[in-house]
Amino acid sequence: MFHLKEVKYKDILNIENLIIPEYKVTCIVGESGSGKTTLLKLLNKIISYDSGEIYYKNKPLSQIDSIAHRRNVVMLPQSPAIFNGSIKDNLLIGLKFAEKPIVSDNKLTEILEFINLNKKLNENAQKLSGGEKQRLALGRILLLNPEVFLLDEPSSALDDETEEIIIKKLVEYTKSNNKTLIMVTHSKKVAKDFGDNIIEVKKGKIIN
């Protein structure tokens, strides 16, 4: 799905060769400041590498339109972005940004169930707890139905039990819908239990 060759980004990342497979769950691990977020941002094309090349489905990223790419390869940032408004507004804003058709309230309620968020659609999203906001942001990108999910520590603010439940559902969902999941995680357990493929980043380099 992704193939990185001699990719350099400032003095933060230096990746000689890395392949990320399609339809698999890939976990990215490594210590804080090693460059995990930067790697995801490169794959989302929210930043561009200085040299080398990243291929997405055998096409160089530099030749793919940024916005079209981000609609196929959606990224969930490390700290969730909550916009002013209700839970419903926050779920729908992703569809608006991606210019996809609006869905029914039933579908939105299903998403809330999926992310174990026991709240009403019209509640103020700014009042949610940190972990609830994180799940709401996750729900928003699930609605977008992209080819690839880039998740930056999607469960960092969750307790172990909720983390386990959510990640499990997520993995099942991506597998049964032929999606590719690329996820940064600080949890060794999550990586071991769910990762088909584990990438470790250390000081900007990939170590196997």
Binding site: I67, M75, F97, A98
Partner: peptide, 11 residues
């Protein structure tokens, strides 16, 4: 942060 998050979603 909000602008970047919107871009990440394809805005």
């Amino acid at each position: 942060h909000l602008i970047e998050s919107a871009l990440m979603l394809g805005a």
